[in-house]
Computed example of a mutant assay.
Amino acid sequence: MQYFPWLKPIQAAYQRSFSSVKPLGSGHIHQTFKISAGTDLFVLQEFNVKVFEHPERISFNQQLVLKGLIGKNLPFALPLPIPNREGQLFTAVNDSIFRLSPYVAGVCLDEVEQIQEARLAAEAFAGFIVACSSIDATLLQDTIPGFNNLELRFQQLKDAYANTQREVVGELKGLVDFYLGQESLVREYTGWIQRLPLRVTHNDTKINNLIFSSDRQRVEAVIDLDTIMAGYAFYDFGDLVRTVACTQPESSTNWEKIGVDRVKFEALWKGFLKGGKGVLTAEEIASLPFGGKMMTCIMGFRFLADYLNGNSYYKIHYEEQNLDRAKNHMLLLQALEDLNFHP
C-alpha cells in the first residue's frame, strides 16, 4: 500500500486498520480517497480549510443532524462523517484535518438524462428536509454566512456596481439595469421568509450531489453535506429548477436555446411534493415556484457582481465568462417568469 504520512494517525483515531487507500473522484475542493478496512469501505477526505474557513460550524451542524436522525429509517443513505474515538467529526494530523465517511456505491450524474431521474432527485432532496424536520433549525450555524440571502446578494451587486473599475456601457449596462430592476423579486423574497417555517436545508441541490443506484431507479444517497444550514424549502426546490430544468448549462452562450424544460420542471414539482408530503405546509408548497426564480436571480446577482469586481471569486476560462453567466441567468429568469405554471 502506498505510503501516506497521515495514514497511521488516522487509523489510530478511528481504531481501524486500512487494507487499501486509493484516490477517489476528481473533485477540486477536498483531496478524497476510497478506503478499505477489511470488508468495510469508507471515504476519507483531507478537508480544504482554504475553501471552507469554518470547519467547526460544518461539524456542529452535522453533529446536530446526526443526533436528530438517530432511530429514523431514511429512504436513502446520508453519509455524514463518522465520529473518531474522541467523538469528533474532524481529525487533525499536523496542519491538516481529515474526516471519514461511509462509502456508498452507485452512480453520480452530471445531468438528468431521463425524466424519472429529475423526479427521484426532487423526492430525495425534499425527503432530506422531512427527515430533519424535527431538528430545531435555529440552532444551526451559518457555514457560509448569507449564502442564499437574496437581500444581501442584491446589496452586494449594488456595491459592486458603485465601486467597479469597468466601463458600464452596452451589454453590461443592459445587464446591470436588468438585475438592479429586480426589487420586486427581492420584496417577494422578504415576504416569503417572514411567513415560512425555517427548515434544515441542503442548500446545494445539484443532481451530482446524489448517488443513484446503478439502474438509476432509486436514489441511494444524498451527499455533499457541507452546506447544511437553516433555510427555506424553496431554496432547495429552486436550485433544482435552476440546474435541472434549464435547457442549457449555466455557462452556455447558446442564447436562443436557453429556456425552461417544462416536462422536467413538472417532474421536479411532483417529486418534491411526494418527498415532502405530510410535512411541507400549504404555504411552503405555494412558495416553491418562486424558488426557481429566486435561485436563478441570486446566481445572476453573484455572477454579475463578480464580473464588476474583476472576477475575483468564480473560476473563469475567459474574461467575459461571468458576464455571460449573468446573461444566461437573465434569460432563464425571464423564461421562468413566462412559464405560467399553476400548481
Rank of each mutant, 00 (worst) to 15 (best):
V104T: 10
F60I: 03
G87L: 00
I70K: 15
V49Q: 14
S96W: 15
A105R: 05
A92L: 08
L100T: 13
E46C: 15
V51Q: 13
K72V: 08
Q62M: 03
L89W: 00
V104S: 03
L109N: 01
N94Q: 13
N94K: 13
T91K: 07
H54W: 14
V107C: 14
I58S: 09
L66Q: 12
G87R: 00
C108S: 14
Q63P: 06
Q63F: 04
F47I: 10
H54P: 12
F76V: 07
L109M: 02
R99V: 03
N84G: 08
S101R: 08
P55Y: 10
F90S: 06
E86I: 00
L89I: 03
A105V: 09
R85I: 15
L80W: 04
K72L: 08
G71M: 10
F60W: 05
F60S: 00
Q62F: 01
E53I: 13
P79N: 00
N94F: 15
F76E: 01
P83L: 02
V49I: 13
G87C: 03
E53Y: 14
P79H: 01
P81I: 01
V93G: 05
R57D: 10
P79W: 02
P55T: 05
A92M: 10
I58N: 10
S101Y: 05
F98S: 15
V65T: 08
V107G: 13
F60H: 05
F47K: 07
L66G: 07
E86L: 00
A92G: 12
G87E: 01
L80I: 01
P102R: 14
F98V: 15
S101H: 07
S101F: 04
F52Y: 12
A105C: 06
F60A: 02
Y103G: 01
Q45E: 15
L89E: 02
N94W: 12
P102G: 12
G68K: 10
E53Q: 13
I97D: 07
C108A: 14
Q62E: 08
E53D: 12
E56M: 04
R99Y: 05
F98W: 15
F98G: 14
L80D: 08
P83H: 06
K67I: 06
R57N: 12
F47Q: 09
L89D: 02
S59R: 06
V65M: 06
L80A: 03
Q63I: 06
R99Q: 06
E53C: 11
L89S: 04
A105W: 07
N61I: 04
N61Y: 05
N48Y: 05
Q62I: 00
E56R: 12
H54I: 11
G106K: 06
P79C: 02
D95Y: 12
P102N: 13
